[in-house]
Design a protein around this nucleic acid. Structure first.
Lengths: 243, 243
DNA sequence: CACTAACATGTAGCATGTTAGTCATGACAG
DNA sequence: CTGTCATGACTAACATGCTACATGTTAGTG
């Protein structure tokens, strides 16, 4: 194996864990910035070469991503980044609603000073990223804000689960972000959640979280429907999964 | 490579897919029947030898199981089957409640003849397994019944997700099954759900599903608390995650 | 006797060789 | 022109060799 590229080394130094984890991050990033196109066929061979590492960790990374549905592996053919169907999106958001709305309620009802300042801080970072149109940073702080609102008591599994669901819709956000909704608008949707959390108002937190997720989910479904040219309506699909 | 054991061959014939999948099944089964003890340290090396295959598919299987939390891999040491803490169990059931209760409601409200007969049939199999004290069959039909009640429109992800959550608590069921509750009792808990589903009564289905999952979850937490000798109460832990 | 350093052992993680399956291409028969 | 079949390129899946590391043990030091 020749000398790894500097970016690989950098990532290695930041995170001494494993090349598999590194590869997972790399694929996520590639999907986020469009380097990996949904539907296109790629091979473990080439990806390993590009990353300057061997096939084993790359393969392991892809298997784990396939487990979450972000990627599909085709035997003896290669792998594809999966573009979720409108129904997939609806299901994903129905799950997120089922998990995050009660979580937001509980979090607000039990909110304490320390997590409050963290949430506020995270929201400020989100605003900042929105102002400077930094989509990558925006995505990251959005994720961390949602994670904070779930983590309350230590819902590790729930956080991991929601993060993996976000993975599946990440490639949709890329094209959507800053078009239908500006980053500022999305950022503002979080404000009532944060305020309700700080006020310890569980019901308000739940309601505004529900509104936020519903708006996001429906928008992504609409986007996906336009892309597929299907005749189905957003309402119809949405009603199959969420109320 | 010597001759694989007959059980391995059997599993291979049933499922011609991949050795990785075979290994996942083998580990699940090993956990279910106590061949793999929680907390004990095992090695990929030996497991691969026992299965009569190479280390690669075994390693891949364990990585995927680690992803779901059923197993923990320790670098350069081995892997352990994870015994979930009382809090872990509470979180798992809070997730299952969030997903399965609304799913049961929707399923009942949209129930049609075809799925109805399938559900009824699955319930009969469950009863039968309970009568004959066949724990393995009982587990399987229990899982399939829950899956049917979720799958409604095609909630593939939700089904997979719930199945993976069940994985994490499987080793607890082993020791519990047929002690605190008899199989017949557990089977009977499903009856009101099935009846509400057949009657198209969403609210009743949701309520009885909630009752069933709550009873199961609390029982497992109690069991786990006794094992750890902790002073926490079931109510206290339960209230941190579920309502 | 306490305490440390060298070493033996066993492991995950990674690299790489091997096997067998899939598909595109094009020759060729009808 | 069309459908069939050989063939070659490419691939995932699997097997296996290698390396660095974590840990328990033992030998050496005060």
């Amino acid at each position: 194996m020749e000398s790894p590229t500097s970016s690989v080394l950098d990532a290695l130094n930041r995170n001494p864990s494993s090349l598999t984890d590194l590869t997972i991050s790399a694929v996520r990033q590639g999907v986020a910035n469009g380097a990996l196109q949904p539907g296109e066929l790629y091979s473990v061979y080439k990806l390993a070469e590009d990353l300057g590492i061997s096939r084993s960790p790359v393969r392991e990374a892809l298997l784990r991503l396939a487990e979450t549905g972000m990627v599909k592996i085709e035997r003896n053919r290669g792998f594809r980044v999966v573009l979720p169907s409108p129904r997939d999106i609806a299901e994903i958001f129905s799950i997120r609603l089922a998990l995050e709305v009660p979580a937001a309620r509980r979090a607000a009802n039990h909110s304490e000073p320390a997590p409050r300042s963290k949430v506020r801080q995270q929201y400020k970072s989100l605003e900042l990223a929105a102002e400077s149109q930094d989509i990558a940073a925006f995505e990251q702080h959005d994720q961390q804000l949602h994670a904070l609102l779930i983590a309350g008591q230590g819902g590790h599994r729930t956080v991991r689960l929601v993060n993996s669901l976000r993975d599946s819709t990440r490639m949709l956000g890329v094209s959507t972000m800053g078009q239908e909704r500006t980053l500022e608008e999305i950022s503002l949707e979080h404000l009532p959640i944060v305020e309700a959390f700080e006020a310890g108002d569980g019901e308000a937190a739940a309601a505004s979280m529900k509104e936020h997720l519903t708006a996001t989910g429906r928008l992504l479904i609409q986007k996906a429907l336009k892309a597929t040219g299907s005749g189905d309506s957003v309402d119809q699909i949405w009603s199959e999964f969420a109320d």
